[in-house]
Each structure stands twice: as C-alpha cells, then as structure tokens.
Design a protein around this nucleic acid. Structure first.
Lengths: 225, 225
DNA sequence: GTTGTATGAATGAAGG
DNA sequence: CCTTCATTCATACAAC
C-alpha cells in the first residue's frame, strides 16, 4: 500500500469537503435540468398530439422546443426567442426592414418564421419593455393588508373570501443578455480550481439537450469527454 | 511529510480522471440549465401585473425554507367579482384607463387587486361573453367541423421545425398539468460560480437562477464519490 | 393525489 | 406608437 501513495493525488479534508459541496451543487443543478427538460418535452409532446405510449421518437427535438398544433399563431422556438432577445438587448432600436429580413433568414434556421413575425415581435417586445419599466417605477401597490403567514388566531382554513396571502417573486430584471456559450472545465487543470476557472470550449450546439439529458444517469455521458 | 499522508484522502490517477470527467459533465449540463432557465423565464416571465403587496420575500430563505412561490394568480374575492360583474353589465364596453384606475381603487377596498387585474378581467370577461353568445346562437351542433389539420396550401401554415423531419401528430391533446415547484438551493452561496466568468450575463442572473433550483436529495449522487 | 375545468395572464397579430 | 382581440398557457380549485 505504501507504494501506491506515490501514484495518487492527495487532498485535505477541507479540500475534499469543498469538492463534495461543489459536486453536490452540480448534481442538484443537473437533476433539475433533467427535470425541467422532461417537463417541457412532455408538455410539448402533448401539444403536438404525440402519444407518449412507448414511442421512442427522435429524442433530438429538444433544442427547438415548441409545438404549434397546426393552428395559426406563430410561436418562437426557444432558440429563436433567445436570439431575438439577444438582438433586442443589443440595444439597437427598431430594426430596419433590411435588418428584419436578415434576422428572419437567420432565425429560419431554427424554425418556421416570417418577417412579419419578427416585426411584430420587436414591436411587442418594445411595448412590453416600456410597460415593465413603468411598472418598476411605481410600485402600483394597492392594498397592503396582508397578513403574514403567521398563524393568526381563529383563522379558518376555509376562507369564504378567496383572500389569500401571497408572495411574489422579486424578479425586477426581466431579461438579460443570453449567452449560448457553454463553458467546460479545462480537463488539464486540477480539481482545486474547480470554482473559478472554466474555459470556453466554443459552441456545443451539436450537443443538444436531448443528447445530454436523455440519460437519467449522468454517468452515461462520461464517454463524451 | 509522512505524517501528512494520514490526514488526506487519496485517489488514483484513474479515479481522478473520472472525477474530472464527471465534474466536466456537471459543469456543462449546469450551464445549459442556466441557459434554459433564462430562456424560459424570458419567455413567460413578463409584466405580470401582479404587483401584489407583501413583497416579503426573504432573499436568503432561511434554512428550512423553500417555497419561494412561483407564479401567483390573482383571484377575485366574491365581493370584487360581484362588483365587476355589475360594472360589466352596466354595458359600457372596454373601460378607459382612467376608469380602470378608479375601479381598481374601489375594489381594493375589498381585497388585493391591481389595475392589470381589472384590465385583464374585463378583457377576459368580454371574450367569455362573446363566446357564450356564439354558443347560445347555435345549439350544440354535433358539428363535423373537425379540424383535422388538413394542409391548406396556404403557406401561412406553420410547422414545428424544419429540422424535425417527421412528426406525426394526431389530434392535439389539451391541457397538461405541469407543476414546476420552485425552491431554493440552500447551500450554494459561495460555491456556485458558474456564471462568475460569464461576461454577458446580467447581474440578477444568479438570483433568479437560484430561485429555480430545488434541492432534492443529492445523497444518492454523492455516494458516487 | 389525480383529473377536469374555469379563468387569470401572456403574447402574437391587427387596426388605427 | 397604442389599443384591442384571439389564442394559448398556466394555475386555482373542485370533483373524484
């Protein structure tokens, strides 16, 4: 056993603890991702009328989540939405006609879309942005007679009035620049630098969600690296 | 140096390599989760008029806590509903902004409410009214107006995704219950830094991100290490 | 706790 | 731009 020591790396308990924590976080996040993916795809599958019954359909429909039941309204795919948001956040106001055309072409790589869709989207997005800003400015708070979920005496659980105490999420910032970049840990660095150093490996587009998520057990993904 | 060995854990190079790979996988997946979350929230999260009072949201959400509520939905109290119906039946169509403001103030005497709630209510009420009328007009005609998405030559028709070759769809299934509980990750502070180096992300990033993660049991995942 | 349904809210599109 | 409407999405709640 003594010889073996020569060929191994060592960690202090503290380092080990840090590592464990980090891994736990990753595990949690990853599980959550998988959950989300399941929920979303299940939902979208149902919308497209797919029977879930034992159909091992191409699991690669992940990236372009969307449905469209053959009715009218256009619905941006997640990729499209992301791109639109990115462009919007680039600051340039109303895109020119030329710009719109270009955007449309770009986005059509990721799903059905037309110029008017793009046009409308920007139009609506601008309006939304403005409204949000206004809302953020003045906290149009009406009544403030909420009772903390502190158990008030004699409070019956069956409220005749549907007056329920509520909490809202504080999500002031609506959206932000979205980066499609995926960072990977540099395989050559030590685990001690786990926390800070990551290296961009460029786009991992090929690795769609489906590819990543189709495995409940993350171990199965190991061979990708 | 010899003594030190007693206080550290050891790993073989192979184990180390496996660990590194696993972590790389987690990192990648986690990045994608964040990506996904951003897209989703950007998509659905918007100007919800839910500026309900009691923004009492503990950013830290003490230990046992979780339950940072997800989307909240206003529910009119019976009194409010009655008043709204009364106003609606008064005939005057879409209330002006001024009118809405006034109504809101009035109704806030009987419970939580915001202007957008009122606005939406009238909007939906009008739609419902119209639909009801239409329904009353032609009694339940066992209409064979089956909307089998017979492909109209009209290219306004939208397709799911050009990249998805064949997706056979039958009749769309309506309504699919999705419950995505929102919890807080409780131990991530200081450890989670995935976004730390991402230059293109807004400041609130991590916060909203944390809101979406839940902390399931990681034990079984931890066991691998 | 599952499923169904009513309805509040989000948003693409149209009209002005 | 702004407002309105149609459609879709999601949630509260009831019925089982």
């Amino acid at each position: 056993a003594v010889e073996k020591v020569l060929f191994v790396k060592v960690m202090t308990d503290e380092q080990m603890e840090i590592l464990r924590s980090q891994i736990a976080v990753y595990a949690t996040i990853s599980e959550q991702l998988i959950e989300m993916h399941k929920i979303i795809t299940a939902y979208q599958d149902s919308l497209s009328g797919m029977k879930l019954s034992g159909i091992y359909v191409d699991p690669l429909m992940a990236s372009g989540g969307h449905k469209l039941t053959a009715r009218q309204r256009w619905t941006p795919t997640s990729v499209q939405l992301q791109m639109l948001e990115t462009i919007f956040n680039q600051g340039n106001g109303a895109p020119s006609k030329q710009k719109i055309k270009h955007i449309t072409i770009e986005l059509s790589q990721h799903g059905q879309i037309s110029e008017s869709n793009v046009y409308n989207w920007f139009q609506n997005r601008r309006a939304r942005s403005k409204k949000m800003q206004k809302m953020a400015a003045l906290p149009s708070n009406s009544e403030s007679e909420i009772e903390t979920d502190e158990d008030s005496p004699n409070e019956k659980k069956l409220r005749p009035d549907k007056n329920v105490p509520v909490t809202i999420r504080s999500d002031p910032i609506y959206n932000m620049q979205i980066s499609a970049e995926v960072h990977l840990l540099d395989q050559t660095q030590g685990i001690y630098q786990l926390n800070g150093s990551s290296k961009s490996c460029g786009s991992l587009d090929q690795m769609s969600y489906a590819n990543v998520l189709s495995t409940p057990r993350l171990d199965h993904l190991m061979d990708k690296f």
